[in-house]
Amino acid sequence: MIFAKELNDTLRGALTGDRRVVLLGEDIADPYGGAFKVTRGLSTAFPQRVRTTPISEGAIAGISAGLALAGYRPIAEVMFGDFLTLMFDQVVNHMAKYQAMYAGQATCPVVIRAATGGHRGYGPTHSQSLEKHFLGVPHLRVVAASLYHDPRTVFADFLGRDEPVLYVEHKLLYPQHLTSPVNGRVGDLIAGSDASPGALPTIRLSAVPAEDCSVSVLAYGYQAHLAAQVIERLAIEEEIFAELIVPAQIAPMDWAPVERSVAVTGRLVTVEEGADGWSWGAEAASVISRRLFGRLDRPVDVVASDATVIPSSKTKEAAVLVGSARIEAAIRAAAN
């Protein structure tokens, strides 16, 4: 089943299992069922709790926060992750503040789902991966959808905890098939899973056992899917062996699986689709450099997209965004 349908099934399960779950978002009602069809059928089944809204992201976030304060479990859809900017005040000054500033007397467990990312030709304002601007907001969790994390497990975690969470869903994941590890493998890759305390499991993928890898690669979301293809190809064609580390939760980060991997390889490449600079990879470089200073063979390499607008033109967009070629070049350089 493709990821969009897995998500749909997950949301249906959440609505069925918990009457406190409410979905809000633009154009999410049937027959349209959302811009990426993730909510198709849900408003028909749950007309009171699945509500299409006006084009009002600030109020969608703010009403979700109020529902959460009142004990509900709102899940807000952001049609394009670019529009998260219109929710920023609600996220930073309202939902992420309430529990701590009210000394634990209230909780605000909002889930914001945002369709992010480029490579679709949607241009400067419908292609961005803006999650880096939300990393480090105190008391906000940021989790990235991936093909290695079953959304049922992810949403069970969200709905079982009290913190607000931003869940970024790269658009190019929607038509892909979920490939959760089975019997220690994802396809031909060896798969390991680290139970990250307080976060969702971190998945590790490699063509050979981790102790035989010479490069660690840290990636999330759609870029992790691309990186998995790259490390598999490099292993077969070039005998370059890299271990790919895929967290679900990218902030706050459980760095332990990354440290364990880099302690073996001495080399780290981070990959993200957001714009270069002040980023997730920059934080990873800072943390790993501090914790493993004497054990690194080379500086941490941060792979990110060019810090500019994302062009609409297919060729120009491909030149700006991180894709397989940039990931491969970085891993090759690190392995040398």
């Binding site: 976030a61 009403i63 109020g66 529902l67 959460a68 009142a70 209230a106």
Partner: peptide
């Protein structure tokens, strides 16, 4: 924050929060 009462210092944002509580009601 106390039972039945909350306040916040940013202008405007409390209005949708109150509307969300109204939706819960």
């Amino acid at each position: 924050c106390a039972p039945g009462f909350k306040s916040n210092g940013v202008q405007g944002g409390i209005v949708p929060n109150a509307a969300g509580i109204a939706l819960a009601n």
